[in-house]
């Protein structure tokens, strides 16, 4: 007689490993990078260097958190580097002209969010691909910054503002703390709120989201508001750290940010985003940059090495993932 038996449920541990393969592999990769650079130069692990690394990683991390939302909807924002340059320059001009720094800070974040709204409108409501809209933004927005500054760097007069980039709290750099706060908020919003669920739904299947009554277009627009606002916040941090504003700030930063997000395991196809992965990805990008400098590798080679490492890491990451799913 044949028995009808139920299939065994797989072990929870195995399910967990499968579901978090991306995050685990990027964590391992980060540890491996740290070990490698320590071997090359043991200054790498010194507290001074690590704190410096965190300070420098903060702007990338802040923007990457917002970019995780953008990429989870299946979009992309190439304009963040240029938004940073513009905000950086305008903030420096206003501070130089004697505006109060709290007012300037608020205004700058509003400016970033407005630029994001403008781009988001074309993406969500006019259905122009995000790649095109933000590529145009990448070019035009830095252009505005160049016009405003004439290409010169603008010195920011000393004030409390500079502590935003240079200060520490309990020995930890303020930018790093700011980045941590942004990441925690991003994590909670993405995984635990109705809004985060809507972002995932729109990214996974926009039409399905619309059919169940979600305001798909508004959600799509909103993520570009966050990326614009986050870029502005990062710009303030950078301006405060360097004590100056320049239209040449953050050139190529969008690539670091996108690499961090994708390294972390957020799917470029949309629908699946992981904030923890993004944090690890942003740290990895910064560790690579910092480690290569400490290893005295010629700055010209740094870009080549960074690009290659990113490609290899993402390739390995996808291989590991494919073993589990094999779809797409």
């Amino acid at each position: 007689m044949t028995l009808y038996t139920e299939r065994q449920q797989g072990s929870r541990l195995q399910d967990f490993l499968e579901a978090n393969a991306h995050v685990l592999s990027i964590a391992l990769f980060l540890v491996a990078c740290c070990a490698f650079f320590t071997v090359l130069n043991d200054v790498f692990l010194s507290p001074g260097n690590l704190l410096n690394l965190l300070r420098q990683a903060a702007p990338t991390l802040i923007v990457a958190v917002a970019m995780t939302f953008v990429i989870t909807t299946g979009g992309i924002d190439l304009s963040v580097g240029s938004i940073i340059a513009l905000v950086n320059a305008v903030a420096a001009i206003l501070l130089r002209d004697g505006w109060d720094w709290p007012i300037v800070s608020v205004l700058m974040i509003v400016l970033g969010a407005l630029i994001g709204t403008f781009q988001g409108y074309f993406i969500a409501y006019q259905r122009i691909p995000a790649f095109i809209v933000t590529l145009a933004g990448l070019s035009a927005i830095r252009g505005v910054a160049l016009v405003l500054t004439g290409g010169f760097s603008i010195l920011i007069p000393p004030s409390l503002f500079l502590t935003l980039g240079r200060g520490t709290l309990l020995g930890i750099p303020l930018p790093a703390l700011l980045g941590l706060v942004v990441a925690v908020v991003g994590y909670v919003v993405l995984t635990s709120t109705v809004y985060g669920r809507r972002v995932c739904a729109v990214g996974a299947n926009t039409e399905a989201a619309r059919r169940v009554g979600m305001p798909a277009k508004r959600i799509l627009l909103s993520v570009y508001v966050w990326s614009g606002g986050a870029a502005a916040l990062a710009a303030l941090v950078i301006a405060a750290r360097l004590g100056s504003g320049s239209s040449n700030a953050a050139v190529g930063m969008e690539l670091d940010v996108i690499a961090a997000v994708v390294l972390g395991g957020t799917s470029l196809a949309g629908g699946r985003g992981t904030m923890l992965g993004t944090v690890l990805g942003a740290l990895t990008i910064s560790v690579i940059g910092n480690g290569l400098i400490l290893a005295h590798i010629d700055a010209f080679y740094t870009q080549i090495v960074t690009g290659s490492i990113i490609l290899i890491a993402i390739w390995l990451n996808m291989r590991i993932f494919d073993r589990g799913g094999g779809k797409r």
Partner: peptide
């Protein structure tokens, strides 16, 4: 719907 309208990643 004929195409089900589900979100695969949820």
């Amino acid at each position: 719907y004929q195409d089900l309208s589900l979100c695969d990643t949820i």
